[in-house]
Each structure stands twice: as structure tokens, then as C-alpha cells.
Simulated scan of single mutants.
Amino acid sequence: MPKGKAHRGRLSRPRLLVQKWGPFYVMLAPGLLFFVVFHYLPIWEAKIAFEQVRIIPPNIWVGLKHFGLLFASPVFWQVMANTLIISAMKMVFVFPVPIVVALMLNELRSGALRKVVQSAIYLPHFLSWVVISGIFIAALSPAEGVVNDLAAAMGFARHSYMTDTGAIRWVLVFSELWRSAGWDSLLYVAAILGIDSALYDAAEMDGANRWQKIRHVTLPGIVPTIATLFILNAGLFLSADFDQVFNLSNDVVRGTIDILDTYVYRIGLQTGEYSLATAAGLFKACLGMGLILAAHLFSKRLTGKGIW
């Protein structure tokens, strides 16, 4: 082959790759930019957890001083306890529900009904927590809320759920469930659709009923997806959803649902204690990494599936 033609062939291959994958790279760019700007670049500034921030640089190195102040604060440990309790409640009562929803959707034989149900349960995911908090505050209002109206019609006393320290955590759980259960089930539905239909045919030939197919074919088929999402949720265990807590909190229940993220927001942006807030955030990040590794090892031992 002439040298010039070979050279042109080598140049055309990258061009063909750009033409083929270029639109996908363009679609990927905003997400990558978000993670670079808000997740990777700030890693370097995590060093201010070990410094005393000054208006006029340079900052003063103080080592572990801010961590000592953080761990000596009773408010920090109360916030930590709130975070663990709320996250544990969500893990127990919210995480399994999308699996059940996906199994129920898979059992619907009417395609039209399935589309209607999916559209209805996916919709709350696209609402912001500002909107959802307004819906729940209005629905749980002791004076005009639909929940208290129904309770009064059945002879029960009206109750102020949004100012009840015993009920507010359950409000967080149910609002999270309403918002995310339908959308999170989408991954499990996709995993179920990926199961080989020959397995269902074989189970049917063996006389298996619907429940036995779910137990012996569907559930084992989505175990890798369950394990992966469990590990990812373990990494987010200490987050407990800042937007949700921030929008549903008030002065009466703040001590009950104040979490690490709202604590960092308050001491960092409202009081200007940047080093202390960074120390709290770094402590949370290290614990999150530890939880991911622990969840991975637990999942590998229990199901044989993990991140790697």
C-alpha cells in the first residue's frame, strides 16, 4: 500500500471514532464537569481542616486541633446520632421497597396498566424537595391537612406531625419513600428484563407457580443489582439527604433531625467556621469510605457479589 494512503487511513480512524461516539461524549461532558468542579477540585482544599483559615494568606497549620474541638462537642455527637438513626430507618424501610415494586410491576400482564402505574410512581422523583416538602406540610397540617381531615372523620384527634419530635423522623421516611421508591425500582425492572426467559420456561415446565418463579428465578437474577445498590447506599449512609431535612425542619424539631450535612452547612456558611466545617465533612467522607468497604466485604461474604 502506498505510504500516503496508509497515512490517510490512520488519520481517518480517530475521525470515525469521533463521528461515532462524539454525541455521547458531548452528553457526558456536563456530568463530568459537575464532578470535576464540585467533587474533585475541592479535594485539594480539604487541607483547611488542618489549618486556621485567615483572611490574608497564608493559613496557619494547626494539625488535628479542629478534630479535637469537633469530637469534644456534645452537639456534634447528637447530630451524629440523628444521622445514624435517620439513615438506618431509611435503609430498613425504604431500600427494600423498590425491589418489591419492581417485582409487582413485572407481574402485571397488562402493558397499558403497567405504563400508567410506572408513570404515576416515577413522577415524584422529578419534583424538588421544595415542592415535596410543601406538599407534605400542607397534607399534614393539623388545621386543613387531608391526613388530619381523614383522621377526624374516623373519630381520631387532630395531630401536628411536623412539630412532633416523635413523628418527624417517620415523615422523613415516608416522604423519601414516596419520592424515590418508584424511580429506584427502574434499575430492578431493567435487571429483571435482562434475565434469560429460558429460565422461566424451565421453571414452568417443572410446575413452578408465580411465587416460586419469583423466589427461585427472579430474585437470584437481580442479586448482583441489589448488592451493588446496597453498597452504594452504604456509602451515602451518613448523608441522610440534606435537601429533604433542610426543607422539612423547623425550630421545634431541629434537634431531632439535625444531621451532619445541615450541621456542616450551619457552622460553615452561617457562622463562618470553615476549618471546623471542613473537618466534619472530611470525617464524614472517611467514614463513608469505610462503610463502602465494609458493605462490599459483607455482600461478598453473603451473596458472592460486590463492587469488584
Score class of each variant (00 low, 15 high):
Leu302Thr: 14
Ala203Ser: 01
Trp170Lys: 01
Ala295Thr: 01
Trp178Phe: 09
Gly22Thr: 08
Val26Lys: 06
Asp201Ile: 06
Ser185Lys: 00
Ala285Cys: 13
Asn247Val: 03
Ile85Pro: 06
Met27Cys: 15
Leu16Asp: 09
His7Trp: 15
Phe246Ser: 00
Val173Arg: 01
Leu293Lys: 06
Ile121Met: 11
Asp201Asn: 13
Pro142Glu: 00
Val37Trp: 09
Val223Thr: 14
Gly9Cys: 12
Thr262Val: 13
Phe35Pro: 05
Met91Lys: 02
His125Ala: 06
Gly155Ser: 10
Ala208Glu: 05
Leu302Ile: 14
Asp251Lys: 09
Glu176Ile: 05
Pro2Trp: 02
Ala6Asp: 06
Leu177Asp: 01
Arg10Ala: 12
Asp184Asn: 10
Val100Asp: 12
Pro74Ala: 03
Tyr265Phe: 14
Glu273Trp: 09
Phe24Ser: 13
Ala151Gly: 05
Gly268Arg: 07
Ala29Tyr: 15
Thr256Ile: 10
Lys284Ser: 00
Leu32Phe: 11
Gly155Arg: 10
Leu105Asn: 01
Arg215Ala: 14
Trp129His: 04
Trp21Gly: 03
Pro142Arg: 02
Thr256Pro: 07
Val94Gly: 08
Met1Lys: 09
Arg8Leu: 15
Thr278Phe: 06
Ala112Thr: 14
Val116Ala: 12
Lys90Asp: 05
Thr303Lys: 02
Thr83Asp: 05
Val252Phe: 14
Pro2Tyr: 07
Asn247Trp: 00
Lys305Trp: 13
Gln212Pro: 05
Met162Glu: 01
His125Asp: 06
Pro98Phe: 04
Phe126His: 04
Asn247Arg: 08
Leu291His: 04
Tyr40Phe: 15
Lys3Thr: 11
Gly221Asn: 02
Phe298Asp: 01
Asp164Glu: 03
Lys305Glu: 12
Ala112Asp: 10
Gly166Val: 00
Leu16Ile: 13
Glu45Phe: 13
Met205Cys: 14
Trp21Met: 08
Gln52Phe: 09
Leu187Glu: 02
Leu16Pro: 00
Ala152Thr: 12
Ala138Asp: 13
Met104His: 08
Ile307Lys: 08
Ala152Gly: 10
Ala49Lys: 01
Ile48His: 03
Val100Thr: 12
Val146Asp: 04
